[in-house]
C-alpha cells in the first residue's frame, strides 16, 4: 500500500515513507542518557530481594526508559532557546525547526503519564510514584529551576539520574531499603565529577548559552578541585555495600579498584599542566580521560554488584 500522487499527464507516483521524522521524535527521548538509567535501574531490580515475573520486570525497565525519555523530551522543549545557540545541540529537532515545540511538549507529557501508569499497573504504585517523582524532579527542579541559575545545577539535578536503582528495587519489593539508597548516593556523587570533566573541555558552548556551569562561573581551577573533592566522597561510597555486608568481596574488590582508578584520574586532572586560571596547556587530556573513565567506573561498579549478587545467590561466594 502506498499513497499516490497524480502527476498530471504522467503515471501516478508511489510515495514511500520518510523515516527522518520518526528518527527526530526518537532523538527527543535522548537515547544515550536512557542507556545509563536503564542499566542502573536494571541492576537495582536484579539485586532486590524477591521475585518479579520476567515480563513485568521487562515492562518496568521499559517504563524507566520511557519516563527518562519523556523527561528528556520536556527538557528539550524548555531548553530550545539555549540549545539553538550551543554548537553541540543546535541540530536537535526543535532548534533545527524540524519538530514544533508544542508538539514536543505534548509528546513528553503523554509519554510521562504513560510510563507512570504502565509502571503502576505492571509492578506497584510505589514504583510508579518514584518514577513520577524522578520525572518531576528532572523537569521542574533541574531543568526549570537549577540549570540556568546555579553552578550547583549538576550536583542537585544529578539526583534525577540517581533515581533508577531505587525505582528498579521498588518495582520488585514495593518499598525502599538501605542498598538502593546507597546506589542512589553513588550515582549522585558520581554525576558532578563526570559532568565537570566533560565541561572542562566543552564549556565554550555553555558560556555562549549563559548556562552557569562550574568552569564558566568559578573557573577551571576550582572545577578541578571540586572534581577531586567529589571523587574523594565517591570512592568510599562505592565500598559501602561491602562494608555494610550488603555485597560480597567480589564487589568490594571492584569497588576498591574502580574507586582508586577514578581517584588517580581526578589527581591527574588536578595536576594537569595549566595556566594561572587552571586552563589546560595540553588540551585537557586528563579531563577527557577522567570523563571516559567515569563511564567505565559506573558501569563496572553496577555490573560488579549484579555479578556479586548472582555468585552469592548461587552459593559460590558467601
Amino acid at each position: 500500500m502506498s499513497d499516490l500522487i497524480d502527476r498530471g499527464a504522467t503515471a501516478p507516483l508511489a510515495i514511500s515513507a520518510d523515516w527522518s521524522e520518526l528518527r527526530d521524535w526518537f532523538a527527543l527521548l535522548k537515547p544515550r542518557v536512557m542507556t545509563l538509567v536503564v542499566f542502573t535501574g536494571l541492576v537495582g531490580m536484579l539485586v532486590a530481594p524477591g521475585h518479579i515475573h520476567p515480563v513485568l520486570g521487562a515492562a518496568a525497565i521499559f517504563c524507566i526508559a520511557l519516563g527518562a525519555g519523556a523527561a528528556g523530551c520536556i527538557n528539550m522543549w524548555y531548553d530550545r532557546d539555549i540549545d539553538a545557540v550551543m554548537r553541540r545541540t543546535a541540530r536537535r529537532p526543535i532548534p533545527a525547526g524540524r519538530i514544533a515545540p508544542e508538539a514536543a511538549l505534548s509528546f513528553g507529557v503523554i509519554l510521562s503519564g504513560l510510563s507512570v501508569m504502565l509502571m503502576g499497573l505492571a509492578t506497584n504504585w510505589a514504583a510508579g510514584a518514584w518514577l513520577a517523582g524522578s520525572i518531576l524532579f528532572y523537569v521542574f527542579i533541574y531543568t526549570m529551576w537549577l540549570k540556568r541559575r546555579t553552578p550547583q545545577n549538576i550536583v542537585i539535578g544529578g539526583a534525577a539520574g540517581a533515581f533508577p536503582p531505587i525505582i528498579g528495587w521498588v518495582a520488585v519489593t514495593g518499598s525502599v531499603d538501605v542498598l538502593p539508597l546507597i546506589l542512589f548516593a553513588i550515582v549522585f556523587a558520581w554525576t558532578p565529577p563526570h559532568f565537570w570533566s566533560l565541561s572542562l573541555w566543552a564549556h565554550d558552548d555553555y558560556q555562549r548559552a549563559g548556562v552557569p556551569m562550574l568552569p564558566v562561573v568559578s573557573g577551571a581551577k576550582e572545577t578541578r578541585r571540586q572534581i577531586m573533592l567529589y571523587t574523594l566522597v565517591l570512592a568510599p561510597l562505592g565500598l559501602l555495600p561491602t562494608l555494610l555486608g550488603l555485597a560480597g568481596w567480589v564487589y568490594g574488590a571492584f569497588a576498591i579498584s574502580l574507586g582508586a582508578g577514578f581517584l588517580f584520574h581526578a589527581l591527574r586532572v588536578l595536576a594537569e599542566p595549566q595556566d594561572r586560571k587552571g586552563v589546560s596547556l595540553i588540551g585537557d587530556v586528563a579531563a577527557r580521560n577522567a570523563f571516559r573513565f567515569s563511564l567505565l567506573h559506573l558501569a563496572g561498579l553496577f555490573s560488579a554488584l549484579a555479578i556479586d549478587h548472582w555468585l552469592s545467590a548461587l552459593g559460590i561466594i558467601s
Binding site: I5, I15, S16, A17, D18, E21, V55, F62, L118
Partner: peptide, 25 residues
Amino acid sequence: LRRRRSRNIGMIVVLIALVIIFYLI
C-alpha cells in the same frame, strides 16, 4: 505525503505495541 505516511506507520506500530504490552502485562 512521505512524512504523513511514515507518521501513520509509526502510529500503527506504537498502538499495536501498546496492545501487546498491556496484554502481556
